[in-house]
Structures are given as structure tokens and as C-alpha cells.
Simulated assay, not measured.
Amino acid sequence: MQDPNEDTEWNDILRKKGILPPKEPEVTEEALAEMLEQTIQEKQSTEARLGKLSLDELDELEDDEDEAILLEYRRKRIAEMKAEAAISKFGRLVKSVLMTM
């Protein structure tokens, strides 16, 4: 089988028909530099914001993050349990009566 990321006429046809996913755009040096600068700015703004908070505010922020993580874990676990319960169903139960003679 051919590489689906290869630039060929055949792969272009398959992309037009929706058989292959659209080709990912190549990342240029310019775009990479922009992403790097944006990430640095986000980190610096977060550090500056956290640096201005008091210890009580930092503790409250940490508690909020812990609670959000626990809620997300709970949602995932409930979804897993529901999926497991759906798989374990195997039809319906029929009450049968045995008659002895």
C-alpha cells in the first residue's frame, strides 16, 4: 500500500473523494517561530499573574484545580462504568416454568 501522505495524483483523487483525510499543511519556520513566541508570552503572563497572588489565593486556586481534576476523573470513570454495563447486557431474561409429570 502506498504512503497516504505522499504527493501523488492517485492520493489527490482519493482526497477529493473523501477516502483519504485532507493533507496536513506543512509547518513553516515562520509559523513555528510565531507559535514559540505565543507560548513564551502565555507562560510569562501566567507566571506574572501567579506571582501577584497571595498565599491564600494560590491555595484556593490549587484547590479549584484539584477539584476540576477529580470531577473530570469522576466523569470518565462513570462513562467507563456505563460502557461496561452496556456491554454486559445480553438480551432478555425469560422466566420458564418446568412442569413435572
Rank of each mutant, 00 (worst) to 15 (best):
E47I: 03
P21W: 05
Q2C: 14
L32S: 13
G18K: 06
K76N: 09
E72W: 07
F90E: 13
M1A: 15
I19D: 04
E37A: 11
G91H: 06
I78S: 13
D7F: 00
I13T: 03
Q41Y: 08
E62G: 15
T46S: 10
V27T: 12
E26Q: 10
P22K: 03
E80N: 13
V94L: 09
D7K: 05
R49S: 07
R74H: 06
P4Y: 03
R92F: 13
Y73V: 00
A86I: 05
Q44Y: 02
W10H: 04
E24T: 03
N11K: 11
M99G: 11
D12R: 14
K23Y: 02
E67K: 12
R74G: 02
L55P: 12
T8I: 00
T100R: 11
K43R: 04
M1W: 12
E24F: 00
W10Q: 05
E34N: 11
R75G: 02
T28P: 05
D7Y: 00
N11V: 07
M81S: 01
E60R: 14
E42G: 04
E24C: 00
G91D: 11
E80F: 11
I40G: 02
G51N: 02
I87S: 14
L20A: 00
Q38E: 09
E42P: 02
K52D: 12
L61M: 04
P22Y: 04
A79C: 10
E34R: 04
E47M: 05
E60W: 02
A33N: 14
D12N: 13
I69N: 07
R49A: 08
